[in-house]
Simulated scan of single mutants.
Amino acid sequence: MTPSDAEDNRWSDLDRPPLNAASLRRALLREGGLWSSLDVVAATGSTNSDLAARADELPEGAVLVAEEQNAARGRLDRRWSAPARSGLFFSVLLKPDEVPVERWGWLPLLTGVAVATGLSQVAGVDTALKWPNDLLVTVGEEERKAGGILVERAGSGAGSAGGGGVVVGVGINVTLREEELPVPTAGSLALAGAGTTDRDPLLRAVLRSLERWYGDWRDADGDPAASRLQETYAAGCATLGRRVRAELPGDRSIEGEAVAVDGDGRLVLATEKGMQEPVGAGDIIHLRPAGTP
């Protein structure tokens, strides 16, 4: 086997076996369930972009998983990458038509709760949530980002007040090694001491958790209090109780203690002037600890 053959062989890294698509379908696709299809591709640019392009033709519950993404995006089109089969990179298509569109802003937070719950159950790793869309794990005594969530409107009704669908993208670093981290502040489940880094049961747990939380939220007409989403998110949100600076467009910023997540999913900052300022996820460029450059 030549070196180039080894690089192309899907079993070249025995610590990172491929996902078993057939087994995942058997476990997750069921009559009356949310998940309607599940596809695993070796590589793509962005699972979010791929699903968004087919949002009108696909039913709710389509799942697309990539072993590798080469044009993955975060909020505000920030780019990131990871070695093939080193994480869980997937998107799902949701169509919460019966939920008032003004409550769809809870979907990134709902996904964060679902992912944290699923990972805790199977990997035994405490996953904290950094508002609005980051997943944090503890490596040594340091809090590091191990994943992120990107939610985008999609479909022919995406530009209107209602209709269309939502593509929810999730990226989780599973077996990323220290020398592979894109930045020193990144982490992975393996570095956090996960009980397992087998991606098949991890993905099953996360998708089952997402199905439960989404179902409860939808049954409550998107009410974050009635579905217990608001209190559960607050309980797992590492941002609350800390002094932060929200950087806004136009070189503006708001600094204060993060004291709550309100009914619209906005982070409420208590400023030194005694004001409580809510900040929406769509309004900020960065959320940083207060006092950092």
Score class of each variant (00 low, 15 high):
residue 3 P to W: 15
residue 5 D to S: 14
residue 5 D to F: 15
residue 6 A to Y: 15
residue 9 N to K: 06
residue 11 W to P: 09
residue 12 S to T: 07
residue 16 R to Q: 02
residue 21 A to M: 13
residue 23 S to K: 10
residue 27 A to W: 13
residue 28 L to H: 06
residue 38 L to A: 06
residue 39 D to G: 05
residue 40 V to A: 12
residue 40 V to K: 09
residue 41 V to Q: 02
residue 43 A to G: 03
residue 45 G to V: 12
residue 46 S to N: 12
residue 46 S to D: 04
residue 46 S to F: 01
residue 47 T to A: 02
residue 49 S to G: 06
residue 49 S to P: 09
residue 51 L to N: 10
residue 52 A to T: 10
residue 53 A to I: 15
residue 54 R to S: 11
residue 54 R to V: 03
residue 55 A to Q: 00
residue 55 A to L: 07
residue 56 D to F: 08
residue 57 E to S: 13
residue 59 P to G: 09
residue 60 E to C: 13
residue 63 V to A: 07
residue 66 A to T: 04
residue 67 E to N: 12
residue 69 Q to K: 03
residue 70 N to P: 05
residue 71 A to E: 03
residue 71 A to N: 12
residue 71 A to S: 13
residue 73 R to G: 06
residue 74 G to K: 04
residue 76 L to M: 12
residue 82 A to M: 01
residue 86 S to V: 07
residue 87 G to E: 00
residue 88 L to N: 01
residue 93 L to T: 00
residue 98 E to N: 05
residue 99 V to P: 01
residue 99 V to H: 00
residue 101 V to W: 03
residue 102 E to Y: 05
residue 104 W to D: 02
residue 117 T to Y: 01
residue 118 G to Q: 02
residue 120 S to R: 15
residue 120 S to T: 13
residue 121 Q to V: 09
residue 126 D to S: 15
residue 126 D to Q: 15
residue 127 T to K: 08
residue 131 W to K: 11
residue 134 D to F: 01
residue 136 L to M: 14
residue 136 L to P: 01
residue 140 G to T: 09
residue 141 E to L: 14
residue 143 E to C: 04
residue 144 R to S: 06
residue 146 A to S: 10
residue 151 V to W: 01
residue 152 E to L: 11
residue 153 R to G: 12
residue 156 S to E: 12
residue 159 G to L: 10
residue 159 G to R: 15
residue 160 S to A: 14
residue 162 G to I: 03
residue 165 G to R: 01
residue 166 V to T: 00
residue 169 G to L: 02
residue 170 V to H: 00
residue 171 G to I: 09
residue 174 V to L: 05
residue 175 T to C: 08
residue 177 R to V: 06
residue 177 R to K: 05
residue 177 R to F: 14
residue 178 E to V: 03
residue 179 E to H: 13
residue 180 E to G: 13
residue 183 V to L: 04
residue 184 P to K: 14
residue 188 S to P: 09
residue 191 L to N: 00
residue 193 G to F: 04
residue 195 G to Q: 09
residue 201 P to T: 03
residue 203 L to S: 01
residue 203 L to Q: 07
residue 205 A to F: 00
residue 208 R to L: 03
residue 210 L to G: 10
residue 210 L to H: 06
residue 217 W to P: 00
residue 219 D to C: 04
residue 220 A to K: 03
residue 221 D to Q: 05
residue 222 G to C: 06
residue 224 P to K: 02
residue 226 A to Q: 08
residue 228 R to D: 00
residue 228 R to C: 05
residue 229 L to C: 03
residue 230 Q to E: 06
residue 231 E to K: 13
residue 233 Y to N: 04
residue 234 A to P: 04
residue 238 A to S: 13
residue 241 G to S: 11
residue 246 A to W: 12
residue 246 A to D: 10
residue 254 I to G: 05
residue 259 V to E: 03
residue 261 V to Q: 08
residue 261 V to E: 00
residue 262 D to E: 06
residue 265 G to I: 11
residue 265 G to R: 11
residue 267 L to R: 06
residue 268 V to K: 12
residue 268 V to S: 09
residue 270 A to E: 11
residue 271 T to A: 04
residue 271 T to S: 01
residue 273 K to Y: 12
residue 277 E to Q: 14
residue 279 V to C: 04
residue 290 A to E: 04
